[in-house]
Amino acid sequence: HHRAAMGPEEFISRIMEAEPPDIYLMEDLKKPFTETSMMMSLTNLADKELVLMISWAKKIPGFLELSLSDQIHLLKCCWLEILMLGLIWRSVDHPGKLIFSPDFKLNREEGQCVEGIMEIFDMLLAATSRFRELKLRREEYVCLKAMILLNSNLCSSSPQTSEELESRSKLLRLLDSVIDSLVWAISKLGLTTQQQTLRLGHLTMLLSHIRHVSNKGMDHLCTMKRKNVVLVYDLLLEMLDANTSSG
């Protein structure tokens, strides 16, 4: 009904309002880090961010009208990609640094204390440089984040019941709205038509890189948990298990 009439401008303003506030780690960081202390800080922050991510998703127009099972699946599939895109956005003006939160910033080299994490830091820094080169705008960033959420499970579920089919078609219409919004945001930048098309392509191609880093990160976190380097608990544990216990 009324959502069909919601244009890209309104859609973007709604998802801009849905943006979560800055999250602080609020811990006394004892440097130098140990493998455990760094992993604990990273996972504590992720757990806090996840709670706000759920509230964020609920504010995306149309999200709550999807079936509850779709809502759950989408969030379980994409949470680390969403965290990583947020990290990239916060770090975009700080070359060589990863700004996990205003009170938790790491240099690339600090990744050395956690086995296997430097490779992930480097991929995140590379994606951040790419977004810096492209001069990513806030309007584009919020569209990309919504795109990650809505696209995350599209190719891994096949709807069976009529309720699932209906939710699926709502999801596809929602994705249309997000794509329209991104196209609209790009059209405001004063580029030629061809440049706009190229920008859309470059921005969306970066999402496959983020998916890749997220998969690497998921494996890494599982390894850290299995080796008892870090205790994963609460919401983060639930989200992590969703990605590992299927089989």
């Binding site: 709670v51 759950i72 379980k76």
Partner: peptide, 13 residues
């Protein structure tokens, strides 16, 4: 109830 389900189904603050 899982925490995710609980957060999804509670009314916004």
């Amino acid at each position: 109830h899982t925490k995710l389900l609980q957060l999804l189904t509670t009314k916004p603050e």
